[in-house]
């Protein structure tokens, strides 16, 4: 009996050793597992130089890194501030890598590409003019520009699939930043909006719906070519809850997402990835709790934030949104240590 027990122990030890070796090689009983490659392309929303605050904490707040870290992806950010659809098309159309950023290689090797684009097609052509047109019910200028945007989008998507036919492509919708206190609109235009009995957020909505419709129109013509991460719906929900919640999602320039805005975009993207079976919810949720708790300790120890209480609340949270709510309610208007 003693011999049998020893033998049994030896077998268990051997099996567990073999299992741990196999696991260490990135394989499971179901076969080899591979770290997924996640790539962000597009504009400054994705690039996240302006957005995370303090800038030194970019790696702790930008949604690209949140997605990468929480899911254990190999992640790269090749979004470029100021990019319009035409510039992104030129960027992805380059025949080869030109430097160590190797963006063509990263597109070729990506399992998932997330794109934030379209915003600058509007922004750089004068938001105030578009707002004034919208008040008069004239969207001809916007439609003309968005016609070009649509053509560019077709080119971008064709090129991405040419480089990587198997990639999962996710396109983000753009949020409406024209809340009442925005600095994006001039005082003159704000006055016209007020005098005309309009609401700036509604004006913004009429423009943003047309902008985001570029994506939906494409999907009607080319079903299943990409998946939508509806960032606009998330931000709009915040606005409907109360404009101050949308303002919390915005950086001081009223253009880029704030830390909380990035967290909201992370939540939208993460949900899409889980729905597509590209992310493990339980593991990601736990990792996100850990990440937020570590970030809290790093940035808010020694401030007025009760770090231990907040960490306990985060531990009990059951959704990404709840974690975000707890974290940002506790840290809003508190200067971090950095």
């Amino acid at each position: 009996m003693k011999k049998k027990a020893l033998l049994l122990c030896a077998v268990i030890l051997l099996v567990s050793t073999l299992f741990s070796l196999v696991a260490g090689c990135g394989e499971t009983a179901e076969g080899p597992t591979r770290q997924l490659n996640f790539l962000v392309l597009g504009d400054s929303i994705g690039e996240a130089i302006l957005g995370p605050s303090p800038l030194a904490a970019r790696d702790l707040y930008a949604y690209c890194t949140l997605i990468g870290k929480v899911n254990g992806y190999r992640y790269h950010n090749r979004a470029v501030s100021g990019f319009k659809t035409g510039q992104l098309l030129e960027y992805v159309s380059r025949p080869a890598d030109e430097n160590a950023y190797t963006h063509i290689t990263l597109i070729k090797e990506a399992d998932i590409i997330d794109v934030s684009i379209l915003g600058n097609d509007f922004l750089q052509d004068g938001v105030n003019r578009f707002a004034e047109d919208a008040m008069q019910g004239d969207f001809s200028r916007a439609e003309r520009i968005l016609g070009e945007s649509y053509d560019n989008l077709c080119g971008i998507i064709d090129r991405i699939y040419e480089l990587n036919p198997d990639v999962t492509l996710i396109m983000q919708t753009l949020y409406n930043p024209l809340f009442a206190d925005t600095i994006m609109l001039s005082d003159v235009v704000k006055q016209k909006i007020t005098e005309g009995g309009f609401d700036s957020y509604d004006i913004g909505g009429s423009l943003l719906n047309r902008l985001n419709d570029v994506l939906y129109r494409y999907l009607v013509q080319h079903p299943y070519k990409f998946f939508i991460a509806d960032v606009n719906a998330k931000f709009d929900y915040a606005y409907r809850k109360g404009p101050q919640y949308l303002e919390r999602y915005m950086y001081a320039d009223c253009v880029h997402p704030s830390n909380e805005g990035h967290a909201a975009i992370f939540s939208v993207l993460q949900t899409v990835l889980e729905q597509l079976g590209l992310a493990d919810h339980d593991r990601a949720l736990q990792n996100y709790k850990d990440l937020c708790s570590e970030r809290l300790t790093k940035l808010y120890s020694g401030t007025s934030v009760n770090v231990n209480d907040v960490k306990k609340a985060i531990k009990c949270a059951s959704t990404y949104d709840k974690i975000n709510e707890i974290y940002f309610d506790a840290t809003v208007d508190v200067v971090p240590r950095y």
Binding site: Q35, R74, H76, D97, A100, I104
Partner: peptide
């Protein structure tokens, strides 16, 4: 690089995570 035989020789500035 997938578009040339030789890898790029590069210098990373700042920190980077081992996992990607």
């Amino acid at each position: 690089s997938a578009t040339q035989e030789e890898p790029f020789r590069a210098i990373y500035l700042g920190d980077y995570a081992d996992l990607g």
